[in-house]
Simulated assay, not measured.
Amino acid sequence: LDAGGDDYLTRPFEHKALLARVRSMLRQKALYDTVESQTRLLEDQAAQLAAWNRSLEQTVADQVAEIERMGRLRRFLPAQVADLIVAAGNGDALLQSHRREVTVVFCDLRGFTAFAETAEPEEVMTVLGEYHSCLGEQIVRHEGTLERFVGDGIVVVFNDPLPCADHTERAVSMAAAMRDAIDEHSERWRKRDYLLGFGIGIARGHATIGRIGFDQRADYAVIGTVSNHAARLCEEARSRQILVSQRVLGAVESLVESVPVGELTLKGFRRPMPAYEVVRWLGRSS
């Protein structure tokens, strides 16, 4: 047995005893082979399970990254545009700093500062919620890019991050739709003794665009005089008035009813800037 044998018989041995011992050894060998086979099978299954776990971990990591990327894009873009960018796989690249011609819409409420000084905070937040919800529907419908909220001010950009040839048309069409939508809210606000108006400024020009900020907090920004131009036109606009720059009017003149306002002295601009009021959106004839 010490030499490696599994069993032995002493002489003289009986033939039946020998056969019984051999059969016992064969059963042990068959059992050993079964155990070995099952062990190898379990090892293979364990290896396959480990590979599946690694693949699942990578899939989950990729999906989490995609959700985070989608979340960043949905902060600025309508859902259908964000979906398109994520599907293309270049959403982060599209938000890197670049230069492009854009149309910028700046709008805010007239009389909001005075209203906020006298109204209860809950009333102010209620009005802002109604206002943002109302305008948000139009931003999404016209596929604009929400750049930022500035209190009661809203900045919307067209032609970035996804280019569109008719970006100025979309901007002016959205502005007219916003004015009509706010008219309905203005009537309800007047019944609550909230004296609020709504004005819009629109400008077109080149700007540097991209993500600004730091790792924990980043925003999408449009840097350039075109944003200031839209903001200054908005400041000059009376309630229900849409003021546009010369370049904006040139792009949509046949699509709107407009009247010249004259040259305006705008803060931050060294020379007077021509401005026009969009009285009515006509659109393209079908």
Results as ranks from 00 to 15, higher is better:
Pro274Met: 06
Ile182Thr: 12
Glu36Ser: 08
Ala175Asn: 10
Arg188Ser: 11
Glu257Met: 02
Thr126Leu: 07
Ser239Phe: 02
His98Ala: 14
Arg74Tyr: 00
Met70Asn: 07
Val86Thr: 07
Arg141Gln: 08
Arg271Asp: 14
Val102Pro: 14
Asp219Val: 08
Lys267His: 13
Lys267Asp: 10
Pro12Asn: 06
Tyr220Leu: 08
Ala218Ile: 11
Asp183Ala: 13
Glu277Arg: 15
Arg247Glu: 15
Met25Thr: 02
Ser285Arg: 07
Ala251Lys: 05
Val104Pro: 07
Leu56Tyr: 02
Leu266Asp: 05
Glu68Pro: 01
Arg69Met: 02
Val244Met: 05
Arg148Phe: 03
Arg192Gly: 02
Cys234Leu: 00
Ile242Gly: 00
His206Gln: 11
Arg27Ala: 05
Ala230Ser: 01
Ser285Gly: 02
Glu68Val: 06
Asp92Met: 05
Gln96Val: 10
Val248Gln: 04
Tyr220Val: 03
Ala237Gln: 09
Glu117Arg: 15
His98Glu: 14
Val127Asp: 05
Val261Ile: 06
Pro274His: 09
Val248Ile: 04
Glu187Val: 07
Leu73Phe: 08
Gly111Cys: 12
Leu233Met: 07
Lys16Pro: 01
Ala88Gln: 15
Pro121Gly: 10
His185Gly: 00
Leu243Cys: 03
Leu109Tyr: 14
Leu18Gly: 09
Gly262Lys: 10
Arg240Tyr: 13
Ala3Asp: 13
Leu41Asp: 09
Glu122Ile: 07
Val102Glu: 08
Ser286Gln: 05
Gln246Gly: 00
Met273Asn: 01
Arg54Tyr: 00
Ile85Met: 12
Asp152His: 04
Ser37Tyr: 01
Ala93Gly: 08
Val252Asp: 06
Val155Ile: 08
Arg170Ser: 12
Ala30Leu: 08
Glu236Ile: 05
Ser254Cys: 01
Gly268Glu: 11
Gly199Gln: 04
Asp6Leu: 15
His142Met: 03
Ile202Phe: 01
Phe115Ile: 11
Thr208Gly: 06
Ala87Phe: 12
Arg204Ser: 13
His185Leu: 07
Glu277Cys: 12
Leu95Ala: 12
Thr126Arg: 13
Ala114Thr: 15
Gly153Thr: 07
Gly136Val: 06
Gln38Ile: 08
Asp152Lys: 01
Leu243Asp: 02
Phe112Met: 12
Gly250Trp: 04
Arg11Asp: 04
Gln246Thr: 08
Glu130Thr: 09
Tyr32Ala: 06
Leu146Asp: 05
Ser239Thr: 07
Asn53Tyr: 09
Ile182Glu: 04
Ala221Pro: 04
Gly71Glu: 03
Ala93His: 14
Thr225Val: 06
Val157Gln: 05
Cys107Thr: 15
Val261Asp: 03
Pro78His: 04
Asp108Tyr: 15
Pro260Ala: 07
Tyr8Val: 10
Asp215Ala: 13
Glu66Gln: 12
Leu249Ser: 01
Leu18Ala: 13
Gly153Ile: 09
Leu135Cys: 09
Ala230Asp: 02
Lys267Ser: 13
Leu282Phe: 00
Gly213Asp: 12
Gly151Val: 12
Pro121Gln: 12
Glu253Ser: 05
Trp189Met: 04
Arg74Asp: 02
Arg179Gly: 03
Lys191Val: 07
Thr168Arg: 12
Val22Ile: 15
Gln241Asp: 04
Leu56Asp: 01
Asp33Gln: 11
Ser285Glu: 10
Ser254Thr: 14
Leu49Gln: 08
Ile154Ser: 01
Arg74Pro: 03
Glu184Asp: 07
Phe158Arg: 14
Phe13Ile: 11
Val81Gly: 02
Lys191Pro: 00
Ile209Met: 05
